[in-house]
Simulated assay, not measured.
Amino acid sequence: MGHISWLGPQDTFPNPLFVADPDPSVPGLIAVSERIYPNQLLQAYQLGIFPWYCDHQPVLWWSPDPRMILKPENFRCSHSLKKNIRQFLEDPHSEILVDADFAAVIRSCATSSRKDQDGTWITHEIMDAYGAIHQQGYAHSLAIMEHNQLIGGLYCVAIGNMIFGESMFSRKPNASKLALAALSAWALQQGVVMIDCQQETVHLKSLGAAPIPRQDFLEQLRVSLNQSNIEKSWNFNKNILVHYL
């Protein structure tokens, strides 16, 4: 496996700013571990690394080049989405719940079928690890609710002044877009410069995300981590979407 580090419970990650691709035959793969050890996930995010692997595989830690990011002000709100937002805001039975049921949102992301992404990488181990950092105030969920039913949403990680989008799902057309629109509007209010979207997909591109060189991403990340924190308890509701009308 070339020079890719196999990490034990106490080992630290190679910094992708200085060790860009330990094994050039697997670009973006930074390290491997047997499982996700406590505090390893937070350490990874601070270095711009995230886990992405399948059940029955070791944990693979990535820092791809280029990196897909969404600048909150660049979120693309189409005419049809604006119409959705209007209906959503006018409907007394619709709401956005922030951090109300993190487990339900991440489970829904894991089990939803999607066109250009495989949900199966959200293993039980991933759910447990993100659940643990949610308890510490670093991972957050947005649930799009209709008549008390969960119809879409997303979960993300926030450290310093940086938001890392993880996964989203829809059970009704545009439900995940409502969640991302709300997250972008909130990020804008909080002075967040970029939302990490990790890897390029057609869907994310259509919503205004764009790839940037990994080096630029990591340098911006380092600056963002040293800036004042976004508040740990997130407290907003669907009215944040008024921003787009």
Rank of each mutant, 00 (worst) to 15 (best):
N148I: 00
N148W: 01
N148A: 09
Q149T: 03
Q149Y: 00
Q149I: 01
Q149G: 00
Q149C: 02
L150H: 15
L150R: 05
I151R: 11
G152V: 06
G153H: 07
G153E: 06
L154M: 15
Y155K: 10
Y155E: 04
C156V: 10
C156A: 14
V157C: 08
V157E: 11
I159E: 05
I159S: 07
I159F: 05
I159T: 10
G160I: 04
G160N: 10
N161P: 10
N161M: 10
N161T: 06
N161R: 15
M162T: 13
M162C: 13
M162A: 13
M162H: 15
I163Q: 07
I163N: 02
F164H: 13
F164K: 00
F164G: 00
F164A: 14
G165S: 14
G165T: 03
E166L: 12
S167T: 12
S167Q: 06
M168A: 09
F169V: 11
F169W: 14
S170G: 06
S170E: 02
R171S: 04
P173W: 00
P173R: 09
P173L: 06
P173Q: 13
P173K: 05
N174H: 12
N174L: 11
N174P: 01
N174G: 01
A175D: 11
A175Y: 04
A175Q: 03
A175F: 10
S176V: 07
S176Q: 07
S176F: 08
S176A: 09
K177D: 05
K177C: 05
